[in-house]
């Protein structure tokens, strides 16, 4: 991809230090009126890594994302993003540091077009203010054209060209999932959180999404956390896997280790063994290749 988006992104990612973790999640506890969603979870995500979190329903995976993005405030623990503590920051402040995410239940702006949804993903890169906007000349116009160029590159990358001017509420579910990924990419993230990106998708849609995720890791070099129930996808794509059960991290390691771990087999894979669901051979080949 030799384009405006890739160039802007590489410039952004060049700021990421390669010798320390992108994210340090340290002994985080979160409860809701007695329900313990997270009971002291610790892990770290390294640069360029595809880190997966798996676990049964209600294990606390989405809660981890909500803590990282500033939606939930944990009672205990610390979270550092790019070395800086982020607990207590507003979600938009964390986003401005370079964090973006998708949601388990799609959270797009249904009334807006695909283009406008992606343009909103670029909001924090917009520099012009109210007065330029009022006249919509000079600075505002120039910037809009640049952002539009970046957005169009992302649209091409995700192969959603034919939908670009549709209100997203009218699009099929699988396409909406892609648009949401596009909106998250538009932010030029240094860490990207994907909450069940292939949930509810058919085989073909799942393979497309797996391909995009691989491209994001291998060509764009963005560090990612992937929460997913599709065990085949996780074992094929992830560099490292964290297994979460009842709010506790019960194991962390390379996919091959995780699959052999007796605790994991008992707690998770034992009851619900669905490994190797529909991922392409190429995806599988490229998988554990650069495990740190």
């Amino acid at each position: 991809m030799s384009d405006a988006f890739a160039e802007a992104l590489q410039e952004t990612l060049a700021e990421v230090a390669q010798d320390r973790p992108v994210l340090e999640f340290d002994d985080v506890e979160l409860s809701f009126a007695g329900v313990k969603a997270l009971g002291g979870v610790t892990f770290e995500v390294r640069p360029k890594e595809l880190f997966a979190i798996i676990g049964p329903n209600g294990a606390g995976k989405t809660s981890i994302f909500n803590v990282i993005s500033g939606v939930y405030r944990p009672q205990k623990g610390s979270v550092r993003f790019l070395g800086e503590p982020i607990l207590g920051k507003q979600p938009h402040e964390i986003a401005a540091m370079g964090l973006s995410r998708t949601f388990q239940n799609i959270e797009l702006f249904e009334n807006l077009t695909v283009i406008d949804n992606l343009m909103l993903g670029r909001h924090q890169h917009v520099r012009y203010g109210v007065f330029s906007a009022l006249v919509y000349a000079g600075r505002a116009r120039g910037e809009e054209v640049v952002h539009r160029g970046v957005v169009e590159d992302i649209i091409d990358f995700l192969e959603i060209e034919q939908y670009r001017k549709f209100p997203v509420g009218l699009l099929p579910y699988g396409i909406q999932k892609r648009v949401e990924l596009g909106r998250a990419l538009a932010l030029e993230p240094k860490l990207l959180l994907l909450d069940e990106p292939v949930a509810g998708m058919n085989l073909e849609e799942t393979e497309d999404m797996a391909r995009f995720i691989l491209d994001i890791r291998d060509e764009l070099d963005i560090a990612m956390i992937l929460v997913e129930h599709d065990m085949g996808l996780v074992m094929d794509l992830a560099d490292r896997v964290l297994v979460q059960d009842f709010g506790l991290a019960i194991a962390t390691g390379a996919p091959s280790e995780i699959q052999r771990n007796p605790d994991v087999i008992r707690a998770y894979l034992g009851e619900e063994h669905r490994s190797s669901v529909g991922v392409t051979a190429t995806a599988r080949d490229r998988a554990t290749g650069d495990t740190p």
């Binding site: 500033g70 702006f109 249904e110 009334n111 343009m119 909103l120 909001h123």
Partner: peptide, 18 residues
């Protein structure tokens, strides 16, 4: 666009940086 984002989904708006 930011107005529309705030109107339609305020939490998502915050999370993507609005």
């Amino acid at each position: 666009r930011a107005f529309a984002a705030v109107r339609d989904r305020d939490i998502a708006a915050e999370v993507i940086g609005v």
